[in-house]
Each structure stands twice: as structure tokens, then as C-alpha cells.
């Protein structure tokens, strides 16, 4: 199992709901200013007074990999779990099983998309877009917030004990 070396941490307290991260994400992956194409999803709760950025945390025992009928959910070398859009048929099984409801549907293709940590970039674009508010930050392996996030991500859908 590839442990995710870097981790995006969210802080809903700092999130203003400006959705710049969503626009940055759509720009990076699709070259378009369209929040519908973002892998980060800001959900507005309490009549939109409370904003929470939802992103894939790449669970250690990721249930989306197991329920995909097309085996299109693939664990990448950097630890992220992404959809192979060539074989995805848009059944949304990965969305329904996700403990945080993170995979998003590309409204133009019907296929799912999740955070790939902007592989190859020095820092994910959403983090760069949120540098002022710091609601989305990048924590590296060994840091306290990284450990806390991975601990949470290892508890989802635990199916055995021991070892």
C-alpha cells in the first residue's frame, strides 16, 4: 500500500467560501474557469454560513477502489487515488461509498474525478490559491497535521484487526 507522502489539510474555520481553490483546480486540470470541473468541493452548510472544503483523503483501505465495477479507481505512486477516465462509465459507485463524499462528477463527461495533488507541480494549485486564508494547506510527511490526517484516513471502513 502506498502511503500518501503529502497531505492536504483543511481548516473550515478559515474558509470564507470564496471558491478560488475550485477555480484554480479547474484551471489546472481543464484549463477552464468552471467550478463544476474542480476536484475540491466547497460545501455550504447552515444556509451557507459554514463552508467546508471537501477533498479526497486517499484512505489507506480506500473503499472506492474495491467497489468500482470497471476497476477504474487506481492508487497512484504518490499515494493518491484517481479515476482512469478511459474506462470509467460514470456509475458513481465511488461517490456513494466515499466516507466524505469526495469524488466529483465531471458534468460534461459524466465521469468522476478526484484530487491528484497536482502531480509534478511544486505545490497544488488550490493551496496556492488559498495562501492568504490558509484554509487549504499542504502538510508533509512527519508533520503533526500529516499524522493526524493519515490516522483519520486509516480508520475508514476498517475491515480487519491485527498486524
Amino acid at each position: 500500500m502506498n502511503m500518501r507522502r503529502e497531505q492536504l489539510a483543511i481548516d473550515p474555520e478559515k474558509c470564507t467560501g470564496c471558491r478560488r481553490c475550485m477555480i484554480a483546480c479547474a484551471m489546472k486540470h481543464h484549463g477552464r474557469i468552471d467550478p463544476d470541473l474542480s476536484r475540491v468541493n466547497i460545501i455550504g452548510l447552515d444556509s451557507k454560513d459554514l463552508n467546508v472544503p471537501v477533498i479526497c483523503m486517499a484512505c489507506d483501505t480506500a473503499p472506492c477502489i474495491k467497489v468500482c465495477p470497471m476497476n477504474a479507481r487506481i492508487r497512484q505512486a504518490n499515494g493518491t487515488v484517481t479515476t482512469d477516465t478511459d474506462v470509467c462509465i460514470g456509475c458513481r459507485a465511488c461517490v456513494y461509498i466515499c466516507p466524505v463524499g469526495s469524488p466529483r462528477i465531471n458534468p460534461y463527461t459524466g465521469r468522476t474525478m478526484t484530487c491528484d495533488m497536482c502531480e509534478g507541480e511544486t505545490e497544488p494549485w488550490c493551496v496556492a490559491a488559498c495562501r492568504q486564508e490558509k484554509a487549504l494547506t499542504l502538510c508533509t510527511q512527519g508533520s503533526v497535521s500529516h499524522r493526524a490526517a493519515r490516522k483519520a484516513a486509516s480508520k475508514t471502513k476498517q475491515f480487519h484487526t491485527g498486524g
Binding site: 459507485a93 461509498i97 475491515f159 480487519h160 484487526t161 491485527g162 498486524g163
Partner: peptide, 16 residues
């Protein structure tokens, strides 16, 4: 030979 204990199965299905 590793210590392990299965916690059980769960039902999840989608209709699409």
C-alpha cells in the same frame, strides 16, 4: 502467518 481478524462484510450496492 500474520495475526488477523476479519470484522465482517457489509452490504453496499448501486443501481445505475
Amino acid at each position: 502467518g500474520e495475526p488477523v481478524r476479519y470484522l465482517g462484510a457489509y452490504a453496499f450496492a448501486r443501481a445505475h
